[in-house]
């Protein structure tokens, strides 16, 4: 079975005022289908950069990156967008829901770009909202929902295209611990039942401890929990 994502000796260097700033200094990582991993490390260790690469939001400076078996090096922005749409779901710390837009329309957003008809989009979005326990909140707008509910809507949106990889950047960072635990339990359940690979980035060691494996980063390198070599 194809790995959800494979990175070989990936580097990423940013140009800041003509100065080359290395964010990743050679990272190799394979996330097999159905994996549940947590990336941990101090600020500036390259966690976020790695996550952006794994999610196809960015491309490596050098090295090879395969998303669902496809090399991103040969893909233009439009093809990369289509690949993200089909294979990756994002969950953000700040939820990033569209204001003035109902829960069901927020969840259906990726399906707009997948080219589905409105009726089909609604149907799938309500199914997924049902599954995250928000079947009774379809028409609510983000400002009418609690933080935990908003993050559930965001998770539903990440799942609606049935991706092979779900990337969560500090998914519990804006939630109190009880609500955070509920959200984590939901992610674990989804990982167990639907087999979607989950990679989450976190500062929180308790959160990281619940993952099947922990990937530790420091100074742009993986220092522990990387691929067995």
């Amino acid at each position: 079975m194809t790995a959800a994502v494979e990175a070989h000796e990936v580097t990423r260097t940013y140009q800041l005022d003509g100065l080359a700033v290395p964010a990743l200094r050679g990272v190799s990582l394979t996330v097999p289908a159905g994996d549940y991993a947590a990336i941990v490390g101090p600020s500036g260790s390259g966690k976020s950069t790695l996550m952006h690469l794994l999610g196809g939001l960015d491309r490596p400076t050098t090295g090879t990156l395969l998303l669902a078996g496809r090399d991103v090096a040969g893909l233009g922005p439009a093809d990369l967008a289509a690949l993200r749409n089909r294979t990756i779901g994002f969950v953000f710390q700040a939820f990033h829901l569209l204001p003035r837009t109902s829960a069901v329309d927020n969840v259906a957003l990726p399906l707009v770009y997948a080219g589905l008809r409105a009726g089909e989009r609604r149907r799938r979005a309500s199914d997924v909202l049902d599954r995250v326990g928000l079947g009774h909140r379809l028409k609510h707008r983000p400002n009418q929902l609690s933080g935990g509910e908003q993050q559930r809507v965001a998770i539903a949106r990440a799942l609606v295209t049935s991706p092979s990889l779900l990337l969560a950047d500090e998914p519990t960072g804006n939630l109190d611990s009880a609500t955070g635990a509920e959200v984590l339990a939901l992610l674990e359940e989804l990982n167990r039942e639907s087999g979607v690979a989950v990679v989450l980035v976190t500062h929180d060691h308790e959160v990281a401890a619940r993952a099947r494996r922990q990937i530790r980063m420091r100074d742009g390198r993986i220092v522990a929990g990387g691929d067995p070599s």
Binding site: G55, L57, P77, A78, A81, A82, R84, N85, R86, F90, F92, H96, L98, L109, P110, Y113, A114, R157, T161
Partner: peptide, 16 residues
């Protein structure tokens, strides 16, 4: 800007 970023993350092409 954030809305644009989100739309792109969930699969909007630059043209969209």
């Amino acid at each position: 800007t954030r809305e644009i970023g989100l739309r792109k993350a969930v699969g909007a092409r630059p043209r969209d």
